[in-house]
Amino acid sequence: MLENFNDLLYMDGNGLFVWFCMAFVILVLSLNILYAIKKKRKLIKLIRSS
């Protein structure tokens, strides 16, 4: 498994393209979720202070 790990990252030279896509997807989706969580905190603060 471990010696195959480099092959896995490399993917016949196209690894960079594939892994960039995965990272981009995870980044954009987590930003969506994080933004919602942050907004909720802000709203609760706002409601409590009013």
Binding site: L29, N32, I33, A36, I37, K39, K40, L43, I44, L46, I47, R48, S50
Partner: peptide, 27 residues
């Protein structure tokens, strides 16, 4: 569905924040 529910719940309490039921939950 997950992100939509999170956003929608925020939107609901944002628009109804002066209503009693919202205050009852958070205050």
């Amino acid at each position: 569905a997950f992100a939509l529910t999170l956003n929608l719940r925020n939107e609901v309490i944002d628009r109804e924040r002066s209503k009693n039921w919202v205050k009852q939950i958070f205050v």
